[in-house]
Amino acid sequence: MPAPRDDAILDAARHVFEQYGARRATVDDVAATAGVSRSTLYRSYPGKEALLAAVVQRETDTFFDELDEVAAGLPPRQALVECFVRGISLLRQVPVLGRLAVTEPAVVTGTPGHPPLLRRHTDRVAATLRRAGAALPDAELEQAAEILVRLASTYLVDPEGSLDLADPAAVGAWADRWLVPLLP
């Protein structure tokens, strides 16, 4: 668990990254917003990249923790639909992820040849589906989870399309039609 000062620094960094994007944000901006000196900030985070990684990790951990709560007690297929609906809604509600998805999509989705976020997010989705009772063999569950993560990433980076992401009922019907078959 981060120390209170680390939470304040990460809150400030999230705000600065939302406001300026990762490229334009500076460590000085974050330190000033957090009300700490640069040296204090550097003791916890050696640079802007480490700070950005910590913000993205914290935001995605919170995102997946909430999806775990949504899935709790639901059968696998219903968990998949409910988590997809809630996940799409959350993606629209987390400004820093939305901003980074537009200005620096590789920060949120990972970069070709360097997919640590993809791997980490796939593992989280697979674990949630397994806890909901998904009976697929591990390798198949991992593949289904990766499809879900890749699909959600595309909606984060480019939300425009035929699916009305602002309509939870439409998102749920879409997930039931197209995603539930991933879990036989």
Rank of each mutant, 00 (worst) to 15 (best):
L163M: 06
A175E: 00
A144Y: 00
A132F: 08
L97V: 05
A127V: 03
T109S: 12
V125F: 09
R177V: 03
I147Y: 04
D167M: 02
R150I: 09
L118Q: 09
Y155R: 14
L165G: 14
V96K: 03
A166M: 05
H121D: 06
A169I: 03
T122W: 07
V149C: 00
E104M: 11
T122P: 01
A132Q: 09
T128V: 14
L141C: 10
P168C: 02
A132E: 02
T154R: 15
A132G: 12
L117T: 10
A173K: 01
D158E: 15
D164L: 08
R119T: 10
H114I: 04
G113H: 03
L151A: 12
R124E: 11
A139V: 14
G98L: 09
P159S: 14
L129I: 01
G133A: 08
V107W: 10
A166H: 01
E140P: 03
G161E: 05
I147R: 01
P168T: 04
S162T: 15
E160V: 14
T103D: 15
L179V: 06
S162F: 14
R150A: 10
P137S: 09
R130D: 09
E140K: 11
V107H: 08
V149A: 00
V125M: 08
L141S: 04
R119E: 15
V157H: 11
G110Y: 00
R177K: 04
L165H: 06
L156S: 14
L151V: 01
Y155K: 08
V107F: 06
A166S: 04
G98Q: 14
R124Y: 09
W178Q: 12
G113V: 03
V108G: 02
L148Y: 04
V96R: 04
D138H: 14
A166G: 06
E146R: 15
T111G: 10
L141D: 02
G133P: 00
P112K: 11
A169K: 07
V157A: 12
L156I: 06
R99H: 09
R131Y: 09
E160C: 11
V96P: 00
W178S: 05
D167Q: 05
G98C: 12
D138V: 14
L179Q: 03
P137T: 04
V125N: 05
L179P: 03
A152D: 07
A135M: 10
A135V: 09
A169S: 03
L156G: 13
R124L: 07
H121L: 05
R130G: 06
L129Q: 00
R130F: 10
R177M: 02
A134H: 08
S153I: 07
V107C: 07
A134E: 07
D123I: 06
L151K: 09
L118T: 08
T103E: 15
T103R: 11
G113Y: 01
V102F: 13
V171L: 00
T128N: 01
A106F: 06
L165D: 05
L136D: 02
A139K: 12
L156F: 08
V157W: 15
P115S: 13
L129H: 01
P112T: 11
L97Q: 06
A106N: 11
A175V: 08
L141R: 05
V94H: 12
D164P: 09
T122R: 04
P116S: 12
P115W: 15
L148V: 03
L148S: 00
G133Q: 01
P168H: 06
D176G: 11
Q143G: 08
L179A: 08
W178D: 05
